[in-house]
């Protein structure tokens, strides 16, 4: 097991707006898994949205995986993509910022460049209601298994109960 690498799983979204809660829900699932297997090199965090102070948080990790619900039309179920630092692509408001912006700020202020990825999970419903829609739930469960497999590879660990292929 690679105990040198420190990994942060950071889910964000509003659990009171249906599928937007997937980012936080999946971090809860990862936390349960991590605790069951004593994976102390994985840390979990979650919030309604990313904020500028998260730049300091991510500077403490080798690998950061952001998890967010997505309404992208061309997204089938989920996608893991590299996050390239970017100071141009700022979200509509500055209260909430993008993963790319966080990583860029991390580099500028804390001189660290963690390996950053964004796991986007397709959602369908965003109204003021708790609970994740059935279609989104399927996407989230697949994304969860995929994320477990990614973490196994990154940390050089393997659990027989997880079928990665």
């Amino acid at each position: 097991m690679n105990r040198e690498k420190k990994v942060l799983i950071y889910g964000y979204g509003n659990p009171g707006r249906k599928d937007d809660g997937m980012g936080i829900k999946i971090t809860e699932m990862i936390e349960e898994w991590k605790n069951a297997h004593d994976l102390d090199q994985i840390d979990i965090d979650s919030n309604y949205q990313l904020n500028v102070e998260d730049a300091e948080k991510v500077s403490q990790y080798n690998i950061v995986i952001f998890v967010d619900a997505s309404q992208e039309a061309d997204l089938t179920n989920f996608r893991l993509a590299e996050v390239e630092p970017n100071n141009q692509k700022v979200e509509f408001t500055m209260h909430a910022v993008s993963p790319a912006y966080i990583v860029h700020l991390c580099q500028e202020l804390f001189h660290k460049k963690p390996e950053a990825k964004l796991l986007s999970i397709k959602g369908y419903r965003w109204d003021f209601e708790e609970g994740i829609s059935d279609s989104a739930l399927l996407n989230m469960e697949r994304a969860f298994i995929f994320l477990q497999c990614q973490l196994q590879n990154m940390l050089n660990i393997e659990f027989s109960e997880i079928k990665c292929n």
């Binding site: 964000y12 979204g13 509003n14 009171g16 707006r17 599928d19 937007d20 309604y48 949205q49 967010d68 619900a69 997505s70 309404q71 979200e91 509509f92 408001t93 209260h95 909430a96 959602g123 965003w126």
Partner: peptide, 14 residues
């Protein structure tokens, strides 16, 4: 002014 940040997953607004 702060109306609500709960919209964040609903896409970017130009």
């Amino acid at each position: 002014p702060c109306l609500s940040c709960a919209t964040h997953a609903l896409g970017q607004m130009p």
